[in-house]
Amino acid sequence: MLLNNTLDISGHQTIHYAISEELNTAIYITKEIEKPKWIISDDLINVKHYFFLIYFDEDSQLMFVHSSIKTPQFYDSLIERFAIGKYERISKYQLNKVLADIKNPEFFNIGMQNRSANSGES
């Protein structure tokens, strides 16, 4: 896995990172400071923090990505930064087929949104 010390995201500052080549894992915490364009002072700023986890499992040749920014385009940009060679995203349909066959499941976090659009859960 290709490891970087900083995660260059426009408008974000990397405030913490940890990389384990032994575990093929990298984590990053970034912050984004936003203030309205119509104010000169720093009296009205919004600071947002983001968390990113990238893990590569050598046996299965799968890369797992968790991101506070949840858009397919952003996930693809993260994969492009860390993957070596060609890659293919696993679709929700493929993942749901695997999950449907599991007996007595106990999930703590699998990074999927609830299928009910009105639930607000993920």
Rank of each mutant, 00 (worst) to 15 (best):
D59M: 07
Y17T: 00
V47S: 10
A26G: 09
V65C: 02
D42F: 03
S41Y: 05
T14A: 04
D57N: 14
E32F: 07
H12S: 03
I9H: 00
Q13M: 15
L62G: 03
M63L: 04
V47F: 06
T14W: 01
D43T: 04
H16L: 07
F52T: 10
F64Y: 14
I54V: 15
Y17K: 01
L44E: 15
I19W: 06
H12V: 03
E32C: 05
E22N: 11
H66W: 12
V65M: 00
E22T: 11
V65Y: 00
D57R: 12
I33N: 01
K31H: 09
E21P: 12
T14K: 04
I45T: 15
L62A: 07
D42A: 06
T30N: 00
Y50W: 04
Y50V: 01
N46Y: 08
N46F: 09
L44I: 14
L53P: 04
I29E: 07
F56M: 04
E58T: 13
Y28W: 01
S20M: 11
F52C: 05
P36A: 05
E32L: 05
P36C: 08
L53C: 08
Q61L: 12
D43K: 04
S67R: 01
K35C: 05
T30I: 01
F56E: 02
I40H: 00
